[in-house]
């Protein structure tokens, strides 16, 4: 090019001709390899636009030549995982709970699958560790209202408690105080008796009066000694575990107003294999019968 190239006196390097307040810019071009790598990246990017989905359009986006879609990638991967699980799930679907538990492979698969299904579907009420809350049973302990065998747990999951399902499990405890079935004094007496049979501090005289009330009003469901009855969903009262609290205050509240917890039925929400895995997982938590 025919222009005057000015050289810097000190370094002997060409200047670009740009000058600011007497400071001149030296012409030190980028290394060639750097520049060529940069150009190669630009060409690569153009190729990428053509081959892959890249540009957003108003209602869609360019699709690219090879039909790649990251969403489809996920769908494929999920299908792949499902196919890999199928060999176990197909067997679990048809096997009985006892057979599954006898087969180490199926048992381990069920425990893992059940844990994952529990976290998604059950932990909202029962807690991440199935530890329960007031009104939501702890599934780790050895006290079961509707029974703690794998089959009974499975039935509870299938039909729920007081759910919309026709075969749902339903227990009705009368609201003794609210509906006027028992006098306040009688309620105090029976509460004192329940405190006695569950091994807590109580007033002996009041409790012995409460025994009569218990025999008349409560024992038909909860049993003569308060041992409970799985078939009716009547909780055991002679132990240390209380769904709604076992102190005097909580018991009085329960006898007065009754309690009705609800668990949804899962028959139409989860498939058979998942329910089986859940039953086995819950049974394994430590309290299974």
């Amino acid at each position: 090019m025919a222009h005057n190239v000015e050289k810097d006196d000190v370094t002997g390097i060409e200047t670009t001709g740009h000058e600011w307040d007497g400071i001149k810019e030296l012409n030190n071009p980028l290394p060639r390899w750097w520049l060529w790598t940069f150009y190669a990246c630009i060409i690569w990017a153009v190729g990428y636009w053509v081959v892959y989905p890249t540009w957003p359009l108003i209602s869609s986006h360019t699709k690219g030549m090879i039909g790649y879609s990251s969403r489809q990638d996920v769908v494929d991967k999920i299908a792949e995982a499902k196919a890999a699980q199928a060999q176990y799930l197909d067997r679990i679907e048809v096997a009985s709970l006892a057979d599954i538990r006898a087969d180490t492979e199926l048992l381990n698969f069920s425990l893992a699958g059940g844990k994952s299904a529990f976290a998604v579907n059950c932990s909202q009420c029962h807690g991440q560790g199935a530890q329960g809350f007031v009104g939501y049973p702890n599934l780790n302990d050895d006290d079961w209202i509707w029974g703690g065998t794998p089959e009974e747990i499975s039935a509870t999951i299938h039909y729920g408690i007081r759910s919309a399902h026709d075969d749902t499990r339903y227990s009705v405890m009368p609201a003794f105080g609210k509906d006027g079935l028992l006098e306040r004094q009688q309620i105090n007496q029976v509460v004192e008796y329940v405190l006695k049979i569950s091994g807590q501090e109580h007033d002996e005289a009041t409790a012995s009066e409460g025994q009569t009330v218990f025999a008349e009003q409560c024992s038909s469901c909860h049993g003569d000694t308060g041992q409970g009855l799985h078939d009716l969903g009547a909780p055991r009262l002679s132990d240390a575990i209380w769904l709604y609290g076992g102190d005097r205050q909580a018991l009085r509240e329960t006898v007065t107003n009754a309690r009705f917890g609800v668990m949804p039925d899962w028959t139409n929400r989860l498939d058979e294999a998942t329910i089986k895995q859940l039953a086995i997982y819950v049974h394994s938590l430590g309290g299974g019968e």
Binding site: G127, Q131, N138, N140, D141, D142, D239, A240, G287
Partner: peptide, 17 residues
């Protein structure tokens, strides 16, 4: 086990996992 830290059993005993 962190969750639950312990489990109360029906006889009043305490179980840890």
């Amino acid at each position: 086990d962190r969750n639950p830290l312990f489990v109360k059993l029906s006889d009043g005993g305490i179980r840890n996992g």
